[in-house]
Simulated scan of single mutants.
Amino acid sequence: MALTVGMVSIDSTDPVPLARWWAEQLGGNIIQENGGFFVVVSLGEAAPRLGFQKVGDPTPGKNRIHLDLTADDVEAEVDRLVAAGATRVAEHEMPGFSWVTLADPDGNQFCVAPGHEG
């Protein structure tokens, strides 16, 4: 069996601006808007796509799936994301690894950690 991640979908009450925000932050492009009901962002040939689906009432509480992003300079990237509208939620550290949890403009949490070599 060979499965491939084709898309990660995110619920939103207003998916178009959220898709635009993520496309801008990740250097992607909106490739489908589907009347604002389901917006697709491409991050390049090899990367999974992000889908933003219109829902009347998003699931309450912490999102059960989140993006784990990496950056060479975590603090600079976190500062950039906050300036663009993200909210810093928490900083985490464990032996040999640290990361920052943020929330996008809709409140969906995601993490930024140092990139890994090799």
Rank of each mutant, 00 (worst) to 15 (best):
N34F: 11
E91I: 02
A84S: 09
S12I: 05
L67K: 02
S42K: 00
P60R: 00
T70A: 15
I65P: 13
A90R: 07
L50K: 04
F38E: 11
E77L: 05
E45H: 06
L26T: 07
V8K: 07
V5L: 15
V78N: 07
T4N: 05
S98V: 08
G107W: 01
R20S: 13
I30E: 10
H92C: 10
D14I: 06
A19L: 06
S12F: 02
D11L: 06
G61E: 04
A103F: 06
G115D: 15
L26V: 08
M1A: 15
L102Q: 09
T4C: 10
D106H: 04
G44A: 13
A113F: 10
V74I: 12
D73M: 14
D104S: 07
L69C: 12
M7R: 10
A83T: 00
W99T: 03
A86T: 00
G27L: 03
T13K: 14
P15D: 09
T59Y: 08
L102E: 00
P15M: 12
H116L: 12
E91Y: 01
V74S: 07
E93C: 06
L50W: 08
D72T: 11
A71Q: 08
F52H: 01
I30W: 08
I31E: 12
E33D: 14
W99A: 13
W21E: 05
S98P: 11
S9Y: 00
G27T: 01
D14A: 15
G107C: 10
T59P: 00
G51W: 02
A103S: 13
M94I: 10
E24K: 04
M7V: 14
S12V: 02
A71H: 01
T4W: 05
F97Q: 14
L69Q: 08
K62N: 06
G115M: 14
V41E: 02
V8Y: 06
A84R: 05
R49P: 05
S42L: 09
T13L: 13
G6L: 10
Q53G: 07
G107R: 03
V82M: 15
E45L: 11
A47H: 12
R20L: 15
N34K: 09
H66A: 09
D106G: 10
P105D: 01
T101S: 09
V16P: 01
G56C: 13
V40Y: 02
F38R: 04
S42E: 01
A46W: 04
D79L: 13
V40T: 14
Q53M: 10
G96T: 00
P15C: 13
N63M: 05
R80I: 00
W21H: 04
D57H: 13
I31Y: 13
G118C: 13
A2F: 07
G118Q: 06
F110Y: 04
T4S: 14
N108T: 04
F37A: 15
F38Q: 08
K54T: 03
A23L: 02
T13W: 10
D79M: 07
A86V: 00
D72K: 12
G28A: 09
T87D: 09
T59L: 11
F38N: 05
P17R: 13
Q109G: 08
G56N: 06
G96M: 09
S98I: 10
A83P: 02
I65F: 15
A23R: 00
Q32P: 05
